[in-house]
Design a protein around this nucleic acid. Structure first.
Lengths: 194, 194, 194, 194
DNA sequence: CATGAATGAGACTTCATTCAT
DNA sequence: GATGAATGAAGTCTCATTCAT
């Protein structure tokens, strides 16, 4: 029971590792199963096709990010500044770690163009962030009036876009620091009470 | 001289058209030669391999951009503001036109990882810009002290990065206008005399 | 004793159903066990291989046919006309029911080419028919002189061939009626006393 | 120019030979190209897929049959008896030669279910036969009044069905002789003038 | 008896590249 | 220079069968 679908994880790990180094198209299922130490057919026990790796990888990375955000935020006093800061810091960290994959995942729709697939991956993030923002709104008045669903979506989108822009262009540490600072300033200014 | 290697151009054109619509991996040499109206073997008279299309495409797009810049700049009074403005306007235009290819060309090193190849493509731009900047420095003092080679490299890099960031993220017209304005302001501020 | 190898029957049923709809080659053991509601390995508790389904299916259908013939004939006065009529009616019925499988079973030797296998399936039929004919010959003289083994074999072959010809060619009801009538006439004419 | 698509013929020949001995599903493209002495990819130069062999084989056999019929009939006085006799003799010959394939081709629609494909294969036969029958009708009155298109279709269908029935059931020479005799009798009786 | 995860050989097919004409 | 038939390696995916539990 412990290592249930331990092989799926090994396949996913091997896939991420190989795709980061060689790109998706240059990575074959044969290479992946060899790296993962499983049989060719085992791959198709856990994935419908090579393309179905794409949302799986996105999901894995995204869950890692969401888990980190929740952990870090829970260790700080709950206020808007800490929430935004955590969002930004973790998103930048994860984007940096997986920057070789971002370009690839960015075009994920080319490989699995089902809205449902991608919605299932992103929804938990939006839901959680929405509830966080609502909790804060009870304590302090936001300076803008918005549907919290759209609001959380917007915040996530902006932070991710900014992180990607920074890391995909080989920015310096200073660029990164600056980017974070500007982003925080912008978001805080938008969301903080008068 | 006129239609010397006219077929090479047809192949290149067809390649760009097909790769923009289908992506590089989904485009076969067979499709390209059919679209270009030449024989299968003719492709290899002009290109060593399918991968050698990548720098060729990059070169084509880049030359288009450089030619435009030179034309436009030559039609205006030569000063820093006009130079930067031309650089920004043309780079944004070309990036917008070929935005489907930018992601792909961005990872060009995966297909032809010879520094020389890519240096040959970009060098004429740097050389020309360097001479332009030097010409302007004779007339007016720049506010910073720099090796002009690095300086031109930096300017080109910044303008291209900014253009890519804007167009790869489906920005609005206002975002684009703003981006250009900020970029010009930044560069002008950096480069203009006190 | 009741549900002894009830699972074997479920597997056989599922196999027949799937093969009728999709053909043998397009039907996988995975599909069969899923349809039967048993585990993958359970299949191999009851069948040595996928190919060993073929004689099993043939046997199942053939037994159904023989059982029906015996039942019907036992409910009528025993004479040549009733025997032939029962043979023809039941054979046509069963052939019609399983017409999608006839072509497939017809080439059964391609899947299990042991004479013994197929002889075991058909022998009971021949044996029974032979004894029936013999019983009738005691009461009335046949118009031809033959080894009863060959005679029964011939009758079975003719009836089955005729039924197959009719149903594999999408015949009309009238064609079928006519076919039966001609067949009965022919056989009766051949076998009946002067 | 002489051996244009000589390789296609070699592939077709090898396919027919292998499929006759092993069946379609047990014959791989690898085996076919090895037998034909060409490369794996060459197969797909001449056939879109393994399945597209099916109508190609049917066409080959059918053309062989039609060519034979035309040759033989042209060497005899043109009358109804000779036409029917030629039809029957050649159809029985070709069916006998390819009896291992008949069952397979019979279900050709399972592999290429485009009506057009199969219509293109059979139409020339119907057209030719129709014209033959019309020519004869000018000289002698047929005993039945029918659309000649349907009439030729009916004659072809009956002769082929009868030949298949005979050869697919391992009939004796006597059975075959008898089958032909009955068939000719039936057709001649139907078509001959009063 | 029963399970179902795991196997790995082998199927069909694509496609970059070569070479005789 | 130009052609396009031919190549064959390599790709993705399927599936009958096994075996530890």
């Amino acid at each position: 029971m412990k290592d249930k679908s331990e092989k799926k994880d090994r396949i996913l790990e091997a896939s991420i590792s190989l795709i980061r180094n060689q790109g998706y198209e240059n990575t074959s299922v044969s290479q992946i199963v060899k790296e993962a130490g499983v049989a060719q057919g085992t791959f198709y026990l856990y994935f419908n096709s090579k393309n179905s790796l794409v949302p799986a990888i996105a999901s894995q990375i995204f869950n890692e990010q969401l888990t980190l955000i929740k952990e870090r935020y829970s260790a700080t006093p709950h206020n808007l500044n800490n929430l935004l800061n955590t969002l930004i810091e973790v998103t930048y960290e994860v984007t940096s770690k997986y920057k070789d994959l971002i370009n690839f995942l960015y075009s994920g729709f080319a490989y699995d163009n089902s809205f449902e697939t991608w919605d299932n991956i992103y929804r938990p993030y939006y839901v959680w962030l929405e509830s966080c923002l609502k909790a804060l709104s009870n304590d302090m008045l936001l300076s803008i009036e918005m549907d919290y669903a759209y609001l959380s979506n917007f915040v996530v989108g902006l932070v991710e876009h900014s992180a990607e822009s920074v890391y995909l262009s080989n920015s310096s540490k200073e660029d990164i620091r600056r980017s974070k600072q500007q982003l925080l300033k912008f978001l805080f200014h938008t969301l903080s009470p008068k």
